[in-house]
Amino acid sequence: MKNSKTIIIIAAVLIIAVGVAAVVLSRDNKNLSDDIDNANVSNSDNVNNNNETGGSEKQEDTPREKEGYFFEYNGVQIGINDEAAPILEVLGEPMHYFEAPSCAFEGMDKIYSYSGFEFTTYTKDNVDYIASIVFLDDTVTTREGITLNATLEDIVAAYGSEYENSFNQYSYRDGNCVLSFIIENDEVVSVEYALPEDDLEG
């Protein structure tokens, strides 16, 4: 009788130990099904909390004071993590639209191309948000006046010398946006607003 009790206790302890381990580990691990639901881009888990810029307001209603770097096109302010729908409504039909479903998962990266620039979106809880903005030619400029073909001196004059440099890329971070410039042969060949990499790895 005593033996049976011991055995039952051992079995119970084993099962409880597995349960406790599962609970402890789950504190550190985000839900995998969230990954699957949001896997159109890998940044979705972290960006939701950053979405404080009130992207759902209509652009034409109340011009807002945005913080950090953002792009402005024909009076439309486009920032990282802004909700895409109101921006698309104001910008109108894109010249090109491309969607790339993620391997194995629901959801997709969407690329909207307009004259001079394009932006991509990610989806969180069935709402699309701006993930990146890229200049396609020199007809568009940053709000601080930098365009394709500018020089590093122009960039430093506009944004200062507190940049991060990796190879020929110069990046400035402000809040939840990284503004990056790639320079080839002393000329800017790429301007991109994007989520910080640590958000992307979320």
């Binding site: 090109h96 191309s113 394009e118 990796s166 190879f167 020929n168 890329q169 790639i182 060949v189 790429s190």
Partner: peptide, 12 residues
């Protein structure tokens, strides 16, 4: 295929 996105420049 209806459109092919322009390849983005890479730093490296």
């Amino acid at each position: 295929v209806t459109t092919i996105p322009q390849a983005r420049k890479l730093a490296n």
